[in-house]
């Protein structure tokens, strides 16, 4: 019996789909059987981020409505053994699926896979309720800006009231240089207000846009720092203790200075 995770944020454009693709691919690289579920019905994107858009025959709504078998809708990623995608329907609406149906679907997938990772749509309406319905654990992703952290706080409240005990946090698109000169909130600031456990810090990285252009998750690229951060997140989700990367830079000048003189 596998584990199901939902990746959510409230605000759009903070990196839910990128995180889903990369964490899923990284787990598959660790010899896990992984299925990525795109719950963003009507605005599907996980397929293009994964570079699998040309191989879609059936989608999530087809499965739920019984037009095809679950296995028929799963797309096998040929680059990594064990990685699969269940695409969202593009021409339907969020209301085409109920939370109960999603719960059943995720339950069935958990019997086959080690990890079921659900990419949640932006917003807190039915699409959100569908995406979280079958999840065992929730990961909240935010960028270091006021609006994104505010929405993350709202989503954490909703997750907690629907029974998720300890949502995990990813801070995405950190720019260490901006943090250093005081023009970006640092990880500590964000953790102070959100008060949940950190599972990863992902630096801003042009390689992400390049990887999205090509449809190749950044974890496949050995030199991408963001890719490294996502591989670390996958290891932490597997229960490994992995130190947070770039912490000296993220801590700012004083942190580096203290490190330099041997105080840390």
């Amino acid at each position: 019996m596998g584990e199901s995770l939902v990746i959510t944020s409230g605000k759009g454009g903070v990196g839910k789909t990128t995180a889903t693709a990369n964490i899923g691919a990284a787990l598959a690289m660790m010899n896990q059987k992984v299925v990525l579920v795109d719950a963003d019905i009507g605005l599907r994107n996980l397929d293009v981020v994964m570079g699998l858009e040309n191989r879609i025959v059936y989608d999530l709504v087809d499965v739920v409505e019984g037009f095809c078998k679950l296995k028929q809708a799963l797309i096998k990623d040929k680059r990594v053994e064990g990685l699969h995608l269940l695409p969202a329907a593009q021409t339907r609406e969020k209301t085409a699926v109920t939370p109960e149906q999603m719960k059943n679907l995720v339950g069935q997938l958990k019997e086959e896979f080690d990890y079921v990772i659900v990419d949640c749509p932006a917003g807190i309406e039915q699409g959100f309720r569908n995406a979280v319905a079958g999840a065992d654990r929730a990961i909240v992703i935010t960028t270091p800006d006021v609006s994104s952290v505010r929405d993350a706080d709202r989503v954490i409240g909703l997750l907690e009231s629907s029974g998720f005990e300890r949502p995990l946090l990813i801070v995405n698109r950190i720019k260490p240089k901006m943090v250093d000169r005081g023009d970006m909130m640092d990880i500590g600031d964000i953790l102070d207000v959100l008060a949940i456990d950190l599972v990863g810090v992902v630096p801003e990285d042009e390689a992400i846009l390049v990887s999205t252009n090509r449809g190749e998750p950044a974890v496949f690229n050995g030199s991408s720092r963001a890719g490294q951060a996502f591989r670390n997140i996958a290891r932490r989700l597997r229960g490994e203790e992995v130190p947070f990367m770039n912490l000296a830079e993220v801590q700012g000048l004083w942190g580096r200075l203290r490190k330099f003189v041997g105080l840390e």
Partner: peptide, 12 residues
């Protein structure tokens, strides 16, 4: 004041 500090206060 640094914009990061302003952001933190406004967020709070």
């Amino acid at each position: 004041s640094k914009s990061g500090d302003v952001a933190r206060e406004r967020l709070r």
